[in-house]
Nucleic acid binder design. Structure first.
Lengths: 224, 224
DNA sequence: CCATAATATGGACGGCGTACAGAAAGAAGT
DNA sequence: ACTTCTTTCTGTACGCCGTCCATATTATGG
């Protein structure tokens, strides 16, 4: 009972949860959500696959922690500044979220796959709701409106990256299928573009404009 | 060259593509998108797993066809009726889509996972865009607006079912994880509710109201 | 120096998608 | 009717996955 705190005894850990999440994020960026595997993570950090279960109880838990980390990494600076008009703040946050989602585009599948109930997720929803309340909404309407906004932001990126991932055709696609029958294959994670390094090239042109167009319309509707 | 048409020679097929998609849909409803497996489908229709590859070139192709079938099953009746005011038509379609998505809630992951480029998907987008054009939008704006609407509809269901699936805790969740460390597990497809039979119970209460609230606000914003 | 406790590893199990080779089963040509 | 051809189906196998069990490792507290 004399030890200062925390870990008392036993073999020291070889890595950290953060290192594991780093590896997971790397795999996510490199091959999409399906490419995140316990075995891959373990290989990357240099431990046996099952050793991961000392840090997280299951793969699902790893993914949940990854989502939390992702949400914790979005830049809230411009959003926190309560001097700015509320719309500007909301738009800044939406764009910031979008930027991060495009940079780690595999994350959107994870975001939409689980309930947004982690601390960072709740903080995000809450502060978004606050900003909308500053715009004159009742607290109840602000909560609803923040939900609508989150749905739009995540949904838009989901459809966008789905369209982006399309291109590639699977290398192993024999025409076992008889004669005609035009069912084709699409994505196959063959040389998935590591978006962390190419983020700028995608977003600038059409899609951000479309995204902002919808965002402002929605905000118009929410304000009235 | 004398045969009437279609299949000319060879061993007859044991099942049909539709039977395979039926089985896939059954698995989808029973265990979510992750529970759809080639082996499971094959077992259900009574063929060897690899025989499926005579009908579809890959699992991805099966899922794509499943999405198309899903979209083809939505009821367009009230939507097609050009006598109704455009807003009513759009709302009817949105609700119809929502109903189908809640009935087969595993489908939303598939919808958002791939590009919406199948025939039925394009038809949907196009006719939605038409209705919006009836509301006075320019064709360009109507296309953008229909995109926003689809994003909202799919995104809303995605977040909704994510929250629904949460509950269950994994049966195999030892506390290997040391001492505290509060990372829990969630979904585990253990007795996944077969939504086709329970569809009515979920949607009626809070969520449809919330959905409609957002929908009308968005339509307000799109109209202005 | 020993007991204890946390962590890491080796190995295995069952399940997945799917590739390959060969067997089955009708249709067409003689 | 027999043979050939064509398509589909099956047996088998490979590599990958998540995760469990038993065991070995390596610290700390007495």
């Amino acid at each position: 009972m004399a030890t200062p705190m925390g870990r008392r005894t036993g073999r020291p850990r070889a890595v950290t949860e953060q290192a594991i999440l780093d590896a997971a994020l790397w795999q996510l960026d490199g091959g999409g959500a399906d490419a995140v595997s316990i075995r891959g993570i373990a290989a990357q950090v240099g431990i046996a696959p099952n050793a991961v279960y000392t840090y997280f109880p299951s793969k699902a838990a790893v993914l949940r922690a990854l989502v939390e980390r992702f949400l914790g990494d979005v830049n809230h600076d411009r959003f926190i500044d309560r001097e700015l008009p509320w719309r500007e703040r909301v738009e800044a946050l939406a764009l910031e979220l979008r930027t991060h989602l495009v940079a780690h585009r595999g994350a959107v599948q994870l975001l939409l796959g689980g309930p947004m109930d982690g601390p960072n997720a709740l903080t995000l929803r809450e502060s978004l709701s606050e900003a909308l309340a500053d715009g004159g909404s009742t607290p109840d309407d602000a909560a609803r409106a923040s939900y609508v906004l989150l749905v739009y932001i995540f949904g838009a990126i989901a459809l966008e990256v789905a369209e982006l991932d399309q291109r590639r055709i699977a290398p192993t696609e024999r025409d076992r299928v008889s004669t005609r029958r035009a069912v084709l294959d699409t994505i196959s994670a063959e040389d998935y573009p590591r978006t962390t390094e190419t983020a700028g090239t995608i977003s600038k042109d059409f899609t951000t404009e479309q995204f902002l167009w919808g965002l402002t319309r929605i905000l118009n509707g929410l304000q009235a």
